[in-house]
């Protein structure tokens, strides 16, 4: 991530020098910082709402019930999880919210699942295998109906906006399965984690 971040910024400055858009590029820093804060503020309200509801669902035993239903699948994908881990219910809810395009519900619930996985993580600075798998599930972005895209097509007067539903579903299912397979394959080649007791926070 360090190199990618550096590379994007370096590339921007080089391209700006070439196109003569150096002022625009510098201004983009300030507008970018501003919109990051706006997004975080926007997320704050939604996140607070969903985590509030999730806490009720959790205390009333609802999450545990859903978790029990999906445990066999979850243990297949997340072998390090114990049978009664609270993360299983969160992961299931996160996936369902994504599938139905409720991204503002999916993100807070996904983060909660990530926090549960972090509790089980041996090295708090680096992502565990299960955390990488959960991330792959989310970056692949499986969605049943691309509602916003259909809305844009309809607004532009497309003859049949919903004709993209099936092709999009094909592509999104493919990349979801691909993401899971690839993350599991890469897991085998990835450097194993070192327990944090041996290596105390070096760069914190």
């Amino acid at each position: 991530m360090n190199y990618i971040w550096f590379f994007i910024i370096l590339l921007s400055v080089i391209a700006a020098a070439y196109t003569g858009r150096i002022n625009e590029t510098v201004n983009a820093i300030w507008t970018g910082a501003q919109s990051a804060v706006e997004i975080a503020l926007y997320l704050a309200g939604i996140m607070a709402f969903w985590l509030g509801i999730m806490k009720i669902a959790q205390k009333s035993g609802l999450v545990a019930f859903i978790a029990k239903l999906v445990t066999p699948f979850a243990r297949l994908l997340f072998p390090d999880l114990k049978k009664d881990s609270p993360a299983i219910g969160d992961i299931a809810m996160n996936f369902s919210a994504n599938a139905f395009g409720l991204s503002n519900a999916a993100t807070p619930i996904g983060i909660k699942a990530m926090e549960e996985l972090q509790k089980l993580n041996k090295d708090k600075n680096s992502a565990s295998n299960d955390m990488c798998t959960l991330l792959a599930m989310n970056t692949a972005g499986f969605q049943l109906v691309p509602a916003t895209v259909i809305a844009v097509l309809a607004a532009c007067g497309a003859k049949n906006p919903s004709e993209i539903v099936l092709p999009t579903l094909l592509v999104t299912s493919f990349s979801f399965v691909f993401a899971i397979v690839i993350v599991k394959v890469l897991e085998k080649f990835s450097k194993p984690q070192i327990a944090s007791s041996l290596k105390e926070d070096s760069d914190d």
Binding site: M1, E115, L117, S126, C132, S175, V183, E187, K191
Partner: peptide
């Protein structure tokens, strides 16, 4: 967002998996 919220700094194979899945998509 996901790794930031728990303070994970080393993304390990999650980064490459995400990029490869995007290319495949």
């Amino acid at each position: 967002v996901y790794f930031g919220s728990v303070g994970v700094k080393k993304f390990r194979h999650a980064l490459l998996a995400g990029i490869l899945a995007d290319v495949a998509g």
